[in-house]
């Protein structure tokens, strides 16, 4: 189930550029995937920019700024991919502000303590990297090229998060280490949920999968991530309880718990703790930047409203 077959190489072998003839629905499918990622990159900035005035030292602040710049850049390049396919970039943000597109579960939360930031970022970055490394084997080449650039930069963010967590765990107080442990137990199930619901019996008939836009199944990527991140987290001194994640030697896979799929769906639909604030922040930014968009795209200005 987790290995690719010869059928997979055929599925992924026809590649497309912007000017290629595409199967019916392919263009819309990849535009949706790219614009969804663009939104995630931009909104994903907000829990971090929220901490900008509270970062405890200057070097960390510089690294924060660098990360935020990178993420906005990622938003730009994925927006470019979907823009070339007919989705105006303003629509990506206005659809979010007006409730037409939803956020993945992890983006509904912020960070309550500084100690939470490192470990949460570590889990989020590693998940993103594993997911992009799967998607970059896909069939739409402009998106593949964008992902390769994004992955490289996510690697830097991963190392920053690793360094931050390591610093707290080795130089911090018991109270601070306990915060890291708590944050891990809070975020780990969220990230398990991030990879999507368990594979249905018919996931291979999903058009995105058949066309090679989606490369691996949710479970495949989730398992790959767990194999990578659990040893890393343990090496930092964080306890990973068997009830959260345990490798089954016989099944050759990770068992996990702590994810209520009904709750995840409800969260995505109704909005989590930070959802209202993020919507507000994006709406205000769209409004206040309107004049710059008019100046930057004089002839092609599309009103967000």
């Amino acid at each position: 189930m987790f290995e690719s077959s010869t059928l997979d190489t055929e599925r992924l072998s026809t590649k497309y550029e912007l000017w290629s003839e595409m199967p019916d629905g392919y263009r819309e499918g990849i535009a949706r995937v790219a614009s969804f990622q663009s939104l995630a990159e931009i909104v994903g900035v907000l829990p971090f920019s929220d901490w900008m005035r509270r970062v405890p030292d200057f070097a960390r602040k510089q690294m924060f700024i660098a990360k935020i710049q990178d993420e906005v850049g990622h938003g730009h390049i994925t927006a470019r991919v979907s823009e070339d396919l007919g989705v105006p970039r303003e629509k990506i943000l206005s659809d979010f502000v007006e409730g037409r597109t939803k956020l993945l579960n992890i983006f509904h939360f912020g960070f309550e303590t500084w100690e939470e930031v490192g470990i949460a970022a570590l889990l989020m970055n590693s998940s993103a990297i594993v997911q992009f490394q799967s998607l970059d084997k896909g069939t739409y080449l402009p998106y593949v090229r964008a992902l390769k650039k994004i992955e490289k930069e996510e690697g830097f963010h991963y190392h920053h998060a690793l360094d931050l967590t390591h610093q707290v765990m080795t130089e911090g107080t018991n109270v601070q280490r306990a915060r890291v442990q708590n944050a891990f137990e809070t975020w780990f199930p969220r990230l398990i949920g991030y990879f999507g619901p368990p594979d249905s019996a018919v996931y291979e008939s999903n058009p995105l999968f058949k066309w090679g836009i989606k490369v691996d199944s949710n479970d495949t990527i989730r398992q790959r991530w767990m194999s990578k991140i659990v040893p890393v987290v343990k090496s930092l001194g964080v306890h990973v309880d068997d009830s959260l994640a345990k490798y089954d030697e016989n099944a050759k896979s990770w068992s996990y718990s702590g994810v209520d799929w009904g709750e995840v769906k409800k969260l995505i639909n109704d909005g989590g703790p930070m959802y209202g604030r993020w919507v507000d922040a994006i709406a205000r930014s769209l409004e206040s930047n309107k004049r710059y968009r008019r100046a930057a795209l004089r002839n092609q200005f599309v009103d967000a409203a």
Binding site: R80, L297, R298, N299
Partner: peptide
């Protein structure tokens, strides 16, 4: 080639 941008 690195990618593309959109500008006026």
């Amino acid at each position: 080639l690195a990618g593309s941008v959109r500008a006026s």
